[in-house]
């Protein structure tokens, strides 16, 4: 049963140094995961994105990362050199960001970028890279991959751009995908489709997924386990199916303050923040 975990984080701290003071963005986060779908939920400033980025070695230079354990597939990530990171990023772990407009290179066609991403990690000829790019575009359910291959990023819609982005991240078949609010910039109906694609790809390819989002309901419907973060700490870890039984007042507050379509309320519940949450309950 005890197989080697895909990701093992123990007591992760990320501190940003500014001119006037130090800001502790992540304070003691631990997570062990296999090839499953993990959701990290929290509001802005909760440290959810910083956690995801620390795992990819993408913490800005002003930030300092400390951890008792920070491992990916048994490899210690602490003190990894740039060459080591390059070997891991893209090839073995990849990231999908919120807005495809800022993540795609505006002067290369979508297909070229995907092919390029493939050739960065795998020794392959141009023709092979092209075939591969077309194949992943099809995998993210773009109906006419040949046409989209030749489009520039500004010529595609938000939903298609995000699917192209996912295709680019999946082309090297990574073992772990970190998705940071991958659908927040999209319309609800498009959001559903993109999620369905992610869902299918993750379960079919047996990848690990870390899904960072502010939307607790969405994450719970999509992931196996959910980590709720507040003030740089995990305040509650839940099985997604047990969301309704959440105990922590913050998690409950997040669930209650959202307006619902199925019932009318005069006033929305307001989250009262308890300073004690900052010290971990």
């Amino acid at each position: 049963m005890m197989e080697k975990p895909l990701v093992a984080i123990e007591d992760l701290h990320v501190t940003f140094r500014t001119r006037t003071r130090d800001v502790a963005a992540v304070r003691g986060v631990s997570l062990t995961m296999g090839k499953e779908k993990i959701g990290i939920v929290g509001e802005s400033g909760s440290g959810k994105s910083v956690t995801g980025r620390a795992l990819l070695g993408l913490t800005p230079p002003t930030g300092e990362v400390r951890a008792k354990r920070l491992e990916f597939d048994g490899q210690d990530l602490r003190g990894l050199d740039p060459a080591g990171w390059r070997h891991l990023r893209g090839r073995r772990m990849a990231m999908v960001m919120q807005d495809p407009k800022f993540s795609l290179n505006p002067v290369m066609t979508v297909g070229q970028q995907i092919g390029e991403a493939y050739r960065t990690h795998v020794k392959a000829g141009r023709a092979e890279a092209r075939d591969k790019a077309l194949a992943v575009l099809e995998a993210v359910r773009i109906r006419d991959p040949g046409r989209v291959y030749d489009l520039y990023p500004h010529e595609v819609s938000g939903g298609m751009g995000q699917r192209a982005m996912i295709a680019m991240m999946l082309v090297a078949e990574p073992d772990l995908l970190i998705a940071d609010e991958p659908t927040s910039a999209l319309d609800v109906t498009v959001q559903m489709q993109v999620l369905a694609i992610l869902d299918e790809l993750v379960s079919r390819r047996g990848m690990g997924l870390i899904f960072v989002s502010h939307d607790l309901d969405l994450v719970a419907a999509f992931c196996d386990r959910v980590l709720v973060m507040y003030g740089g700490r995990v305040v509650e870890t839940l099985k997604a199916s047990e969301l309704a039984g959440a105990k922590h007042p913050y998690t409950r507050g997040l669930l209650d303050c959202v307006p619902r379509l199925d019932r009318a309320q005069r006033e929305l519940a307001v989250l009262t923040r308890d300073p004690a949450w900052l010290d971990g309950r």
């Binding site: 509001e43 802005s44 959202v258």
Partner: peptide, 8 residues
């Protein structure tokens, strides 16, 4: 805005 702030 965050959902809790949205409610407020």
């Amino acid at each position: 805005l965050d959902v809790s702030i949205q409610a407020e």
